[in-house]
């Protein structure tokens, strides 16, 4: 990923989590080895396309995913439906993706796809994340796949 995209990625992630979840993520050096100490992983991703293509992916432990979804929805976790939980994480991903694109592409040439979610028992392995943040003791990892130039038609 371009070096100049790291700051916008950090700012977009912080703004969404602070504004919509009242959480204060603290940027940290991405760990070389990622161990999930509180359960399986939840991963969300959103693609963007236009004059360049790419993917933004966020990895949370299940504990962090629950914290973010609970904070976003602001209700009693026991009353939250699976659909609301899933939609909450997808909406957070959508907002981070949209906010990030607005910062790196203010002309609006890049378009976001609908976000998707997958559950995994292990890190999906795209190497070291471009951004890691400490969110109340949990590690949030954000990846942006290197955008590729589209072949001329």
């Amino acid at each position: 990923m371009r070096e100049e995209w790291i700051r916008p990625l950090k700012d977009a992630t912080s703004e969404v989590l602070e504004t919509m979840c009242f959480l204060c993520p603290v940027p940290m050096e991405p760990p070389d080895v990622f161990s999930v100490d509180d359960g399986d992983l939840v991963s969300t991703e959103v693609h963007f396309q236009g004059h360049r293509g790419g993917t933004l992916r966020i990895e949370f432990s299940k504990g962090l995913a629950a914290l973010i979804a609970d904070s976003f929805l602001g209700g009693n976790p026991s009353e939250m439906t699976d659909e609301q939980y899933r939609d909450g994480l997808l909406e957070i991903t959508n907002m981070i993706g949209g906010n990030f694109l607005q910062r790196v592409d203010p002309e609006g040439r890049l378009v976001l796809s609908l976000p998707s979610l997958c559950l995994s028992s292990h890190a999906l392995g795209m190497g070291k994340p471009q951004l890691a943040m400490d969110v109340e003791g949990h590690i949030l990892r954000v990846f942006v796949e290197e955008p590729r130039e589209e072949a001329p038609s």
Binding site: M20, A69, F72, L73, G74, G75, T81, E83, Q84, Y85, D87, G88, L90, E91, N94
Partner: peptide
């Protein structure tokens, strides 16, 4: 389309 965002917006 997001049920979560509908809930949040209402709040």
């Amino acid at each position: 389309d997001s049920s979560a965002m509908r809930l949040v917006l209402k709040k």
